[in-house]
Design a binder for these strands. Structure first.
Length: 406
RNA sequence: GCCGGGGUGGGGUAGUUGGCUAUCCUUUGGGACUGUGGAUCCCACGACCCGGGUUCAAAUCUCGGCCCCGGCCCCA
């Protein structure tokens, strides 16, 4: 029986990898220019790191296992918790703010569909140590900047959980979280029934009025002049100054109980149901992992969805050299290839083919240049450079060849 | 976890009222062609997703599983 890869995973062939690396490098360059530094955490962590937070339901989607020492471990389902775990473990006494970025594979046991896999990649940043509007605005603007660098159009929605929460200030945490889930799911009927059940049907009208608010003043008219709105207003005006376009959206609930303030999501076109390519917000997690309470803001791009949303993109052309030789010049050809490999991607025949077949192969693999070494070249102490596009060729010294190809 | 559509060489396919050596294109390797690519011709390699059942006989019918695609649920 033929072996198959596990469900929901992917093999990436050279052309796909070239595209992914190209995209990844643009994202890296962008966040590094904003002063973020790369970190890497383990592929697996203690299971507890992911179950400490809200929602035991998420455990169903975690790849968990016991190692030979009986430790309960889990393949990471996301990277925010590991980064904050790292912060608490090693970096609490370092100058703030801390600005990190990561790119890594994550694992969730979910039903695969378009844009959703069991192994997928997250590219994200975490800004640790500031809860000022400038910090939140920077993270949003950075996400927007990543899209700009990729020349990808995205629909940015920004909200603040404080607005909804202040509407519900008289309810219990449990009730608030339940309502947030209904809103996040856009389950209008479920929400109405729940509000009646807890004896607060009057909330329905104001909740919907808030969700439909299109600016801060409108929201103020509903929930009053609460600090959350002032904070959001500051963030938004900074975004406007930076030329970032956004839509106010108080319906972003994110289902996450550790998100505390600003939240945002970015959607791309052409992706079907799973069209969210980025999610982020400000949160407090460090205290859950045994550290001092500290504010953080971050985002994560679903890298695979970004790749899909970009569709077919043309990559910068690469020089590709192949050294072609006759039998008597094989050793010299190896030396020539060795020299060329200090500068270019260079191939040499490994199949024992004749000159004609070697050139044919060069054509098949898309070589841009062929460097031919044979009896005549040996005698002249030169090599022949052939341009595979034009077919023009000329006998030159090897140093000249390197200059020509470059 | 639920619903729908699928699975034949590496890729794309024909073939199913059960029946001859499973069709064609492409790819790959070799040759025609021992110093010059893209063409042409020839040769070769290579497949019925897995398992059970029905049958003289299964790619074809049937049951279960696995996997793929799309949707639902969920989505830290």
């Amino acid at each position: 029986m033929k072996m198959q890869k596990p469900r929901g995973t992917h093999d990436f062939l050279p052309s796909e990898m070239a595209k992914r690396r190209f995209i990844e490098n643009i994202m890296r360059q962008t966040v590094e220019n904003w002063g973020y530094q790369e970190i890497q955490t383990p592929t697996f962590e203690n299971l507890k790191l992911f179950t400490l937070r809200s929602g035991e339901t998420i455990v169903d989607e975690i790849y968990e296992f016991r190692d030979k020492g009986g430790r309960a471990l889990a393949l990471r389902p996301e990277l925010t918790a590991p980064v904050l775990r790292l912060y608490v473990e090693k970096l609490q006494a370092t100058p703030k703010p801390l600005k990190f970025y990561y790119f890594g594979n994550c694992f969730r046991y979910e039903r695969p569909q378009k844009g959703r896999f069991r192994e997928f990649w997250h590219f994200g940043v975490e800004l640790i140590g500031s809860d000022r509007p400038e910090a939140d605005a920077e993270v949003i603007a950075l996400a927007s900047s990543v899209l700009d660098a990729l020349e990808l159009r995205g629909d940015l929605h920004v909200g603040h959980l404080g607005a909804l929460r202040s509407l519900m200030r008289d309810l219990s945490e449990e009730q608030k979280n339940a309502i947030m889930r209904f809103i996040d799911k856009r389950d209008d009927e479920g929400l109405r029934m729940y509000l009646e059940e807890i004896g607060a049907p009057a909330l329905e009208e104001s909740i919907y009025a808030l969700i439909e608010s299109e600016d801060i003043d409108e929201a103020r008219g509903i929930v009053g002049d609460v600090p959350a709105l002032g904070h959001l207003e500051n963030i938004l005006s900074l975004l406007s100054e930076l030329g970032v376009s956004y839509k106010i959206d108080f319906s972003i609930a994110r289902g996450l109980e550790y998100y505390t303030g600003m939240v945002f999501e970015i959607y791309a076109e052409r992706l079907g149901t799973e069209n969210q390519i980025c999610g982020g917000g400000s949160y407090r997690l460090a205290h859950l992992f045994g550290g001092e309470d500290i504010p953080s803001t971050g985002f994560a791009f679903g890298f695979d969805r970004v790749v899909m949303a970009l569709g077919d993109i043309s990559l910068p052309p690469q020089k590709k050299v192949i050294v072609v030789s006759t039998k008597e010049a094989r050793v010299e050809a190896l030396k020539v290839a060795h020299r060329l490999r200090r500068h270019f991607s260079t191939n040499i025949d490994l199949m024992g083919r004749g000159v004609k077949a070697q050139l044919s192969h060069a054509n098949v693999i898309g070589a841009t240049h062929a460097v031919i070494v044979g009896k005549r070249e040996l005698q002249a102490r030169k090599v022949t450079l052939r341009d595979m596009m034009t077919g023009e060729q000329e006998m030159l010294a090897l140093d000249e060849v390197i200059e020509r190809i470059r």
